[in-house]
């Protein structure tokens, strides 16, 4: 193996396709540990696809395919012979709409990654489920009804349940694809607070359409436009003195 790169995640020349349409035109980007990176840009510009390339979920989309190099802790996740299942255990994901497993209880939802991958069982499993629910700031609300269906929770609680489910396997990277776009302002605030807390444990890459949200919680911001990474830098710099005219126009609301 080569010398490990200082970055946790290193993306080089990443192109993504659906059938023959190129969605991402060669993205280069690096992420350091314990950072929150926000991805902004108009709808359909490839932010979500980019995120889904990082845990090799894009290839599950019919016709989906990716090219280029994505290394996680120095290991190329697109190298021949790499099992996407192993990669996904180290990169958690939270989706736009809360998607708890419908037939499972709250406990089973959080336990699913640990149990089905045979990582933990018995008392250790219970402890890790509790820890994950506490990390997701949901424990106090559900500790008395762990056997209730995950679907019985409110939208905001369901989303935190999904965050707990992703955190239970302790991934070094957590991808969040517009995690608050389906939630009310109170739930959104809770999840934003959570993201800031979680930075200590993991590294978060979050797609958002909410510019204020990106400004509030991220350390770095990436601006995508039509499948290109236009600008990537410290959030304060991107929002106050962007180096690209298109970034400035988007942030000030002149298009998008």
């Amino acid at each position: 193996m080569m010398t490990p790169s200082p970055a946790l995640l290193e993306v080089k020349g990443l192109k993504a396709f659906v059938e023959s349409t190129e969605i991402l035109h060669g993205i280069d980007l690096g992420v350091s540990p314990h950072e929150v990176v926000a991805f902004i840009g108009p709808s359909g510009c490839g932010k979500s696809t980019f995120l889904r390339c990082l845990n090799r979920l894009h290839e599950e989309t019919p016709g989906g395919r990716a090219e280029g190099r994505v290394s996680l802790e120095g290991q190329d996740i697109y190298a021949v012979g790499t099992d996407p299942v192993r990669i996904r255990r180290r990169i958690g994901m939270v989706f736009q709409k809360p998607n708890p497993f419908p037939s499972m209880s709250i406990f089973e939802n959080v336990a699913s990654g640990l149990r089905l991958n045979r990582i933990a069982k018995g008392i250790e499993l219970e402890a890790r489920v509790e820890a994950a629910l506490r990390e997701a700031a949901l424990w106090n609300e559900v500790k008395d009804k762990l056997d209730a269906s995950g679907m019985s929770l409110s939208g905001g609680q369901q989303q935190r349940l999904c965050i707990a489910r992703a955190l239970a396997v302790k991934p070094p990277v957590l991808l969040m694809d517009e995690p608050t776009s389906a939630l009310d302002p109170v739930s959104t605030a809770k999840i934003e607070e959570l993201v800031i807390q979680l930075k200590k444990e993991t590294t978060i890459l979050m797609v958002t359409h909410n510019m204020q949200q990106a400004a509030r919680i991220s350390d770095r911001t990436a601006f995508f436009l039509y499948g290109d990474l236009v600008e990537y830098g410290p959030t304060t710099k991107v929002f106050t003195t962007p180096s690209d005219r298109r970034t400035e126009e988007y942030i000030t609301g002149r298009f998008g």
Partner: peptide, 18 residues
């Protein structure tokens, strides 16, 4: 069963059969 539920399972690192 919605695709989002399957994707949630895959994203947890579960093999497709599981």
């Amino acid at each position: 069963v919605p695709r989002s539920v399957r994707e949630a399972g895959l994203a947890l690192g579960l093999p497709k059969a599981r």
